[in-house]
Write a protein that binds this DNA or RNA. Sequence first.
RNA 1: CCUGGGGUAGCCAAGUGGCCUAAGGCAGGGGUCUGUAAAACCCCCAUUCGCAGGUCCGAAUCCUGCCCCCAGGA
Length: 315
Amino acid sequence: MPLAGRQPVNAVIAIEGPTGAGKTALAVALAATLPVEVVNADSRQIYRGMDIGTAKPSAEERAAVPHHLLDIVAPDETLTLAQYQARATAAINDIHAQNKLVLLVGGTGQYITAVLEGWRAPEVAPNEALRLELEAYAAAHGPLALFERLRMLDLQAAQQMDPYNVRRTIRALEVCLSTGQPFSAQRRKEAPDFPALAVALTMDRELLYQRLDERIERMMANGLLEEVRALHEHGYDWHLPSMSALGYAQLGSYLRGECSLEEAVSAIKRETRSFVRRQYTWFRRHGAPHWLETPEPQIVQHLIEDWLAGLRGVT
RNA sequence: CCUGGGGUAGCCAAGUGGCCUAAGGCAGGGGUCUGUAAAACCCCCAUUCGCAGGUCCGAAUCCUGCCCCCAGGA
């Protein structure tokens, strides 16, 4: 353990990659030889009671390394990006205060990007009443009519928006209307005060898809359907953001009698694949992470140590 | 061997003489992203219709031959 004691560096190492690529296993393996704690960067593992379908780290894995930001909200609570970021920042500071390294682990590209790039989202809390009103407007007059309202308030934001994306049009309008300022003028980022290294796991696409199919079958065998049913019986509504998660949404359709179980499971597989494609657009986006096809813990460990040594040399 | 039905993208499938440089769906690929992000949205994906001729100003669509597939008959 060459780096443990001497000259600690308050760094963040992001371990990202598509679902099922082995991020959790790598994090646990690294913890055996490096002084680290994990900060979760997965938008679905934050929910209590959603364990099987989110492939949440097991009790053993959590015993092996402290994990932060797991099970922090109930499925009927929303955790916004800004709230996530605030919690993640607090956890990072906490870990650094113990002279440990942060492993930011997860497949939610937006979360990792926001932390690494120091996004400063406009401080406008969601306004449910306004959102409902704007949704109704879009339903009555069409998405383009809603988009036109944004165009008049904030031309620049409109130019960067897909006119049919009602969801994002509403958020932009929400910010414009409640601040009186254009949304496009309120998007900022501030470089974070810690050095960061991004490691991205990847894998042959065919192989990954095959492994994901198998993992989904395993989840079903491990009681995913019962987990989903229990959440619903507990009163969690299907339209909650948490219940839009892969596995939960499709099994919800089955439980509502809209399709067969077989159809639901193949929908999970299919939609998991298209999720993987969307995940990659985030990972490819922020500057050149280290892509690893076979994440040998020792190789990653050396990568991290070399990077830390470089930081010390410069400082 | 005869009769009938059919061969359009990896798969399903619309189109039966000009609006077809071929609809749609699935699968696949790429992308957007600053308070729902495992969400929402956008883009790409057959110069070609089993093959070869012919008719026609013009054919995936009509005719002839051939090759496959399916059903029934022998």
